[in-house]
């Protein structure tokens, strides 16, 4: 690899990671809008259902925001080992956040509608799959 190519490689990596980071943030933004829409629809059934749906959305969005920021926020060119370590560390953090948020919700919020909470949570997981596949299905 010539000297100019070696200088360009980290810039290309940084550009690619920045683009991915923006795309993932856009997906999270779309899901936040979806949460608000579902919560507004649940408001027709009752206030408890509406805030339960909102809580389900927050429990999904906060850990995923942390995961995205932690894994793709570092825009420097790190090796495969560094990527793997940061991904595993972020995954552990995400799981711990999910457990903490679910536990605190079930302990602190009463009354709660489990169907709205888990319904919104599962809907967001499904929408995440769909949006990821749609946005990144480039055939490469």
């Amino acid at each position: 690899m010539s000297k100019s190519e070696a200088e360009q490689a980290p810039a290309a990596v940084s550009r690619h990671v920045r683009r991915s980071f923006r795309a993932f943030m856009r997906i999270l933004l779309m899901q936040a809008v979806l949460v608000l829409l579902v919560s507004a629809a649940c408001l027709l059934m009752g206030v408890v259902e509406a805030y339960s749906a909102l809580l389900g959305g927050v429990i999904y969005l906060l850990p995923n925001l942390y995961f995205t920021w932690r894994t793709l926020g570092n825009r420097q060119a790190i090796g495969a080992r560094g990527v793997l370590v940061s991904m595993y560390a972020s995954e552990i953090g995400k799981m711990m956040l999910v457990v903490a948020l679910f536990s605190s919700t079930f302990m602190l919020v009463q009354p709660l509608s489990p169907f709205s909470l888990f319904g919104t949570f599962i809907l967001l997981q499904l929408s995440g799959w769909m949006l990821h596949l749609r946005l990144f299905n480039t055939g490469s």
Partner: peptide, 15 residues
């Protein structure tokens, strides 16, 4: 291909 694999890895971990 590490940057491309990084994004794909991120997506599949989420799945």
């Amino acid at each position: 291909l590490v940057p491309v694999l990084r994004s794909q890895f991120f997506i599949v971990v989420g799945l």
